[in-house]
């Protein structure tokens, strides 16, 4: 099956991004495809390469970049949500791109399942 993932909360503050990551890894393990993950609202804060977690903590942004590179996942950040939070092209971590909300509706249509992780 093809899974689309929607993440609506930022990293470290809320478990949503962690849950989404573990779900995505499991979906890939189960032989499913995850063509796109869409980051919306505070979820866009998952996309900045400027974050520097402490040494003993997980690196949420790098995990997404690495998963995207290994499995060819399209990490899309909502443009309006990103710009109002200072997330721009020049601060994006590898694998992320900024685009419109149409990309969310599109993956809703294309995927067999859309799975939402929010507050």
């Amino acid at each position: 099956m093809r899974f689309g993932i929607l993440i609506n909360e930022g990293p470290y503050q809320h478990q949503a991004s962690d849950s989404a990551y573990l779900f995505t890894k499991a979906a890939l393990e189960e032989g499913h495809e995850v063509p796109r993950i869409f980051f919306y609202m505070d979820g866009v804060n998952n996309a900045t390469r400027l974050q520097e977690p402490q040494q003993d903590d997980r690196n949420i942004v790098r995990r997404w970049s690495q998963l995207a590179e290994t499995h060819g996942i399209d990490l899309v950040v909502c443009v309006a949500a990103a710009l109002r939070r200072g997330i721009k092209d020049e601060v994006l971590a590898p694998g992320f791109r900024i685009s419109g909300l149409g990309q969310l509706v599109e993956i809703g249509i294309q995927a067999d399942r859309l799975v939402t992780f929010g507050d």
């Binding site: 899974f3 779900f23 890894k25 499991a26 499913h32 067999d112 399942r113 859309l114 799975v115 939402t116």
Partner: peptide, 16 residues
């Protein structure tokens, strides 16, 4: 988590 994935696959769509 693999069970979570199977639940979505078998019984989806997902509503959060």
């Amino acid at each position: 988590y693999n069970g979570f994935v199977r639940l979505v696959a078998e019984h989806g769509p997902h509503q959060a």
